[in-house]
Amino acid sequence: MTGAVLEAVLAELAALEDPNVRAANQKRGDDHGVNLARLREIAKRLKTQQELALELWAAGGTAARLLAVLICRPKEFGPDELDTMLRQSGAPKLQDWLVNYVVRKSPHAETLRLAWMADPDERVASAGWELTADRVARKPDGLDLPGLLDTIEAKMKDAPGRLQWSMNTTLARIGIEHAPLRSRALDIGQRLGVLKDYPTPPNCTSPYAPAWINEMVSRQQRA
């Protein structure tokens, strides 16, 4: 039964392929041409279907795997499965969705966070730092925040793209959420200058950590 459904869904995704969307996505390193709003509409219609999600992932293709992420049951994956899926998720958007929509909800998230942060693969390590940034904001108990700042201070400047971005996110989260460490986080961000010149559209918050920290703290104080 799922085989027929799989073929129908893959055909639907193929029909949604838009060269303009693909061209825009390619500028961000993503390799699919399906509008994400349309993709979410399909997921809403299909609802949760773990078997179909597994088949979509196995079929390959970023659009199919993005849809798989939206309809799967995160708690049904084992740690080895999630590790394999992460290493297969080359597109930045796919890795982002996998980490935030699946791994973060998994009972294995903390085990994977620690393992991935130490991984020599930049993409895998960046996923570990994304999970760390999430923990800094939501469940910081047990984290060595000063130790994280030490690592960021020593390694973020020369870290490759994705890893640098994730470390910078962690730096900003520490500065935003933990007032006693805010001045140090600001100092590290200012001295390293990472993403200082990142092009930021009007009315959007810059990813440059000092600007990001100050903007979010200002919003908290106005609330």
Score class of each variant (00 low, 15 high):
P19D: 08
P19C: 09
N20W: 01
V21S: 10
V21A: 06
N25W: 02
Q26A: 11
Q26S: 15
K27N: 00
R28M: 13
R28H: 10
G29I: 07
G29P: 13
H32T: 09
H32R: 08
H32P: 10
H32Y: 12
V34N: 05
N35F: 01
R38H: 11
R38S: 11
R38C: 12
R38W: 09
L39D: 04
R40D: 12
E41K: 12
I42R: 07
I42E: 06
A43G: 13
L46N: 04
K47D: 15
Q50P: 13
Q50K: 02
E51T: 14
L52K: 10
E55K: 15
W57H: 01
W57M: 12
A58K: 15
A59N: 12
A63I: 04
A64N: 04
L66H: 01
A68H: 00
A68D: 06
V69C: 02
V69H: 00
V69M: 02
L70Q: 11
I71W: 00
C72M: 10
R73W: 05
R73S: 15
P74K: 06
K75Q: 14
K75R: 15
K75P: 14
E76M: 11
P79F: 07
E81R: 02
E81V: 00
L82Y: 05
D83N: 11
D83T: 15
T84M: 11
L86E: 13
L86Y: 00
R87I: 03
Q88V: 06
S89A: 15
P92A: 05
Q95K: 14
Q95E: 08
W97G: 14
L98P: 03
L98H: 02
